[in-house]
Nucleic acid binder design. Structure first.
Length: 780
DNA sequence: CTCTTTTAAGGTACC
DNA sequence: CTTAAAAGAG
């Protein structure tokens, strides 16, 4: 009890309001570094401990497995500490290690394990393992509970086959990647193939609808689902089946959603259904014993390219809340105190983000000292930039020897930028690329997983085709084509043909022996799936399949690395069995296909982190370098003529700045080598949107105000306010810091929404928001 | 069926 | 420039 009171005493009033919230809807607007995870974990603890909610009545949705793991861990600590106080009168950390472990495992069993904490995908995959057989598909497709989850490359393969082979479309016009992207977007907007077709207006869209429809058919034939389906199908199921929805609505009395600004329409609908039981009349909602608790920050919304929509967060008050103005509302709390960064860093962040238009009014209030100024370096080239980063890190470590390598992070806009940095670092300082190639995306791991998926779900033809000739067994294209065509004519999964010796002998001729041998191998292990542990199965089948010997006999460095990765997979299975107390193959597979990074292995390592700004979200580092602040790189070219995406780039910059605790370094190169040719580079407009007095520049760095065009060096103040604009008219001559001189050729919209179409002789025609872009009118 | 040469594409990325 | 996938040759 003491622990609880103590813990709550350390919260600020807003955090306290969030944590003590019991029933009803609440939106927590949580700025960067404001103790958001703390609010979430304390609240869950509070619900169970104070309000006696059963842990399995709580659903907490996060966006990454890592966030889920962290929350679990922190709640476990809260309970263990509470229990320690209660039983021994001492805090947990004062107990001997063995007792701590024992206490934590008790807490884990009772309070933590039953909690439904996880990502949308893992939680709803779990629900589908119970209920997918009751789902009525619009096109009559069916799935079984042992479905496979297809990852992006499996899916790309399927789409490619449909586009190029089945429908024989022009690869240039219907690039499989962009078709796949369109389909994913459709799913994230809750559109079935039929609905997508009905809304299609162009030939392209109608064709994509056809691919989409065929794609679903192929997925179902494999008893497979893609990631989007893990959200879409439960949503459909809940829409169509009152009983099932009612069951889960009753199950999840308290729903918490983290990173609410990153939800898409389908996820929103799913949450809405669960919270309201599908009841549309607000007055019928029963908040007596339940709650909906959404946490997020619209200023950190950086995933609209994958259909995340921060307007869902902005609409929370209207959708679920009391809809009252910010000052009086009971259904929104803002966490504005920042415990992470120095004041100078926060001022810069606040100043930058104020240039965006559609926001919930919010600032980050500093709680720590001012700190040093932000350092801006103008480099001659990207190589000079890398040298600057390296030099600065070495210098800082000289001055403060207690700064570990892990204190540094280098953030960039595009992955391609990492190479130059790596070249500068290699052999000199320890570094790691965060994000890069995922463990489960590696070829050898995908091969191994294909074998396992085939054991669990024989209908999974995608995995079958991957495994059948890996390692090479002399089963070639011709044989496989014949087998596939037989399966298609009979309308059965390929495995049905391959597993029948007589059929194989008839169809495969000379290679029949090899195919039958493969079939016998798989059959032997399929018989053991129910009775054997996953860690035995994975080792045994790869050994028996000759996969390990194949790698061993190659002897190249590459093969050695691959072999090491396979061994790493073996220990991942062991870890999984220990952590989740689940030895089934199905359990491991579900976890593996949804796992993103085994990179947390590297967590303890002391190394400089290199990553994209997107990967940096949710992380923090004492010292942050934000590199490549150049127009066209960051903000990215594709956002320059679209005010909406430009705002997203600005949010991305905001996310980058707010990762820094102590010091922030910015850099920009005057020319950059991109795809072989050297291009001159213009400083990013974001640099001009920072308060100049907080920036310290190296001799050469000059803020990019072309002399004479910017009359004043005043900080840019609130360009988004209500000033009616500068009365733009057609024919006005302007100068833009990226596009040069141009002429306004059209006014679009009016008032606050007014945009300008401008013809730039140097850059073509662009549509520009004069409140956002750095635009100067040239007096005639 | 496998190895070599050619060609194309390269924004961000969660699960 | 670099890497990956596709086509072409043995």
């Amino acid at each position: 009890m003491v622990a609880t009171a103590d813990a709550l005493a350390h919260l600020n009033p807003s955090q306290r309001r969030a944590v003590e919230h019991h029933c009803g809807p609440l939106l927590v607007v949580a700025g960067a570094g404001s103790g958001k995870t703390r609010a979430l974990t304390f609240r869950i603890f509070q619900l169970i401990h104070q309000h006696r909610v059963a842990p399995d009545n709580i659903l907490a949705v996060t966006f990454t497995n890592k966030a889920a793991r962290e929350m679990r861990d922190r709640i476990e600590k809260l309970f263990a500490d509470q229990l320690a106080q209660q039983e021994t009168g001492k805090p947990l950390t004062a107990l001997p290690a063995a007792e701590q472990t024992q206490l934590r495992s008790r807490v884990y069993k009772q309070q933590i394990k039953p909690l439904w904490i996880g990502t949308f995908h893992s939680l709803f995959a779990r629900i589908l393992r119970y209920d997918i057989d009751k789902y009525q598909d619009e096109q009559g497709h069916q799935w079984q509970r042992n479905f496979s989850i297809f990852d992006e490359s499996d899916v790309q393969g399927l789409v490619k086959e449909i586009v190029l082979k089945d429908l024989n479309l022009d690869e240039k016009k219907f690039n499989p990647r962009s078709v796949r992207y369109a389909m994913s977007n459709a799913k994230n907007l809750l559109r079935s193939p039929t609905e997508y077709l009905n809304e299609a207006t162009t030939y392209r869209e109608r064709t994509i609808a056809e691919v989409y429809s065929e794609y679903q058919k192929r997925l179902a034939a494999n008893n497979g689902l893609d990631f989007d389906d893990l959200i879409l199908i439960p949503t459909r199921l809940f829409q169509q089946n009152e009983t099932i929805l009612g069951y889960w609505h009753y199950q999840f009395q308290h729903i918490l959603v983290d990173e609410y600004q990153d939800t898409n329409r389908t996820q929103y609908e799913l949450i809405r259904l669960l919270a309201t039981n599908g009841e549309t009349r607000k007055e019928q909602w029963n908040w007596q014993r339940r709650s909906l608790f959404a946490v997020g920050d619209a200023d950190q919304s950086i995933y609209s390219f994958r259909m995340a929509d921060y307007k869902i967060l902005l609409d929370f008050q209207r959708d679920f809340g009391d809809g009252l103005p910010d000052a009086t509302t009971q259904t929104m709390v803002k966490l504005e105190e920042n415990y992470r960064s120095r004041e100078n860093i926060l001022q810069a962040a606040n100043h930058l983000i104020a240039h965006n238009t559609e926001r919930i009014d919010k600032v980050l209030r500093p709680t720590r000292g001012e700190g040093e100024r932000i350092y801006l370096y103008q480099a001659d080239s990207e190589r000079d930039e890398a040298q600057f980063v390296l030099g600065s890190i070495l210098k800082l470590r000289e001055r403060a020897s207690d700064l570990g390598w892990g204190s540094f992070a280098i953030l960039y806009r595009t992955n391609a930028q990492s190479r130059v940095l790596e070249d500068a670092f290699r052999g000199r300082v320890p570094y790691m690329i965060v994000g890069g190639l995922k463990f489960y995306d590696r070829k050898e791991i995908k091969d191994a997983i294909a074998y396992l998926r085939l054991l669990a779900n024989p209908a999974d033809t995608v995995s079958l085709l991957r495994a059948i000739n890996t390692p090479r067994r002399g089963i070639g294209k011709a044989t496989i084509d014949n087998l596939i065509s037989a399966a298609q004519q009979l309308g059965v999964p390929l495995w049905e043909i391959i597993s029948d010796e007589t059929s194989v002998n008839t169809i495969a001729g000379r290679t029949a022996k090899a195919v039958n041998g493969f079939a016998a191998l798989i059959k032997g292990y399929q018989g053991k799936v129910e009775t054997s542990d996953a860690n035995y199965l994975v080792r045994a089948i790869l050994e028996d399949a000759g996969y390990l010997d194949d790698l061993k006999s190659k002897g190249t460095d590459e093969a050695k690395t691959r072999l090491e990765n396979i061994y790493e997979l073996f220990s991942a299975v062991d870890d999984f069995q220990r952590e989740y107390e689940d030895t089934t193959l199905a359990g491991f597979l579900a976890n593996a296909s949804l796992a993103s990074d085994l990179d947390n292995l590297a967590e303890g390592q002391e190394a400089i982190s290199l990553m994209t700004l997107h990967s940096a979200k949710g992380l923090e580092f004492p010292i942050v370098f934000l590199v490549g602040l150049e127009q066209g790189l960051f903000p990215n070219v594709r956002s320059l003529d679209d005010p909406q995406s430009l705002e997203e780039e600005r949010r991305l910059c905001y996310v980058g700045i707010t990762r820094a605790q102590e010091r922030l370094f910015l850099s920009q190169a005057r020319q950059r080598n991109l795809w072989g040719s050297t291009e001159p580079a213009i400083p990013s407009q974001f640099l001009m949107e920072l308060p100049p007095e907080l920036i310290e520049r190296n001799g050469r760095a000059v803020l990019p105000r072309a002399a004479g065009h910017m009359a004043t060096a005043e900080p840019v103040t609130q360009p988004a306010d209500d000033t009616p604009g500068l009365n733009w008219k057609v024919g006005d001559r302007v100068i833009h810091n990226a596009f040069g001189e141009g002429e306004v050729i059209l006014l679009l919209g009016s008032g606050r929404k007014q945009n300008l179409a401008i013809n730039f002789p140097a850059a073509g025609r662009k549509i520009i928001d004069p409140r956002v872009a750095q635009l100067e009118r040239i007096e005639a």
